[in-house]
Design a protein around this nucleic acid. Structure first.
Lengths: 160, 160
DNA sequence: TATTGTTATACTCTATAACTATA
DNA sequence: TATAGTTATAGAGTATAACAATA
C-alpha cells in the first residue's frame, strides 16, 4: 500500500479505536463504580499521588480541563464522598483534593474490571513485538502532540 | 521493561494521544469551517458516499450515535445549509441526507488544514517502518474493539 | 408487529466571565 | 498585580421514552 493511503487508514483506525475504547471505559466505570471515566481517572491520579492528595490546579493541568470544569467535577466527587477538598497549608489560596476511604474503595471496585477491559480490548490481540511497536509509535505521537496542544496552565497564561 | 508496565504505558500513551488529537481537530474544524469535528466527520462520510447521500440510520451506525443524537446533528447541519434531508424514494419511512454545494464547499475549506494537522501531529514523527507497525497494531485493536462494542443498530435491537 | 425518524425532556459536561481571597 | 478557586450562566451534546408514519 502506498504511504498516503496507509496514513489515511492508520488515522481512521486510531480515531475509531479511541472512540470504541472510550465507550467501553465509560460503560465499565459506570457499571462497576457508578462513576464516569473522567472521575475514575481523577480518582486514580489522586490515589497515585503522595498521601493521596493534589492541588486542584495540578489535577486540572494533568487532564485537559479548565478550572471551572474541575470545580464541577470536584463538587460531584465530594458530594459522592469520594474526595474531600481542604485548604492547602502552604498556600491559603489553594485547595487540596484528598481521596477518601470511600474513594479508595470505589477505585478498588473499578480497577480490576478496568484492567480487564484494557487487556481484552487492546492487548489480547497483540504479540510482544507488536506491543513494542505500538508502544513506540504511540509514545512518539503523544510526545509530538503535547508540543502542539497547550496545557490548561498555558491556555490560562495566554489569555491573560 | 517488563510487559505489564509496558502495557500500562502504552495504554496511557494511547488515551492521551487520542485526547490531544481530538482537541487539535476540534480547534481546526471550528477555525476553518465553523463546524465541530463530529460535523466534519458526518460531512466527510456523506461526501464519500455515492451521490453524496446516505440514510440517517446508516450515518448513525457509522458513528457511535443514537438516532436522536443524529437527528439533532442533522438539524444543525440542515439549518447551516450543509446538508438537506429528503424522503427516501425506496422506503418512505427513511430520510436520506444529502450534502449540499455549501456542504461541499465547507468540507473543502476544512480538509486541507485537517490533513495538515494529521500529518504534523501524527505522521511527521514516524518513519516508514514505524508507520507500518502502528497501522498494524491499531487496526488489530480496532477490529478487536469492534467485536466488543455493539453498534448503534445492535443496541437498538437489544433493547427491543 | 417491526422499523425509521423526530421531538420533548432531562441530564451531563464544558467554557467564559465575574467574583473573592490570598501571594 | 498575579494566582487559586468557585459560581452563575449559557451552550453543546447525549440518551430515553413517547410518538407518528410506513413496511
Amino acid at each position: 500500500m502506498d504511504s498516503p493511503a496507509r496514513r489515511n487508514e492508520t488515522y481512521f483506525a486510531f480515531i475509531e479505536a479511541a472512540n470504541l475504547l472510550q465507550a467501553l471505559m465509560e460503560e465499565q466505570t459506570k457499571r462497576d463504580g457508578g462513576i464516569s471515566y473522567l472521575q475514575f481517572v481523577l480518582l486514580a491520579r489522586l490515589a497515585g499521588a503522595p498521601d493521596g492528595r493534589m492541588r486542584m490546579t495540578d489535577l486540572a493541568d494533568s487532564t485537559v480541563h479548565s478550572r471551572s470544569g474541575l470545580s464541577y467535577q470536584g463538587r460531584l466527587l465530594e458530594d459522592a464522598g469520594l474526595i474531600e477538598r481542604v485548604p492547602s497549608t502552604d498556600d491559603e489560596r489553594s485547595v487540596t483534593a484528598v481521596i477518601t476511604e470511600t474513594g479508595h474503595a470505589t477505585l478498588e471496585r473499578v480497577l480490576p474490571g478496568h484492567v480487564e477491559v484494557v487487556e481484552q480490548g487492546m492487548f489480547s490481540v497483540l504479540d510482544d513485538s507488536q506491543l513494542d511497536a505500538l508502544s513506540d509509535g504511540l509514545t512518539a505521537v503523544r510526545d509530538r502532540l503535547r508540543t502542539l496542544v497547550p496545557s490548561a496552565a498555558q491556555r490560562r497564561k495566554k489569555r491573560a
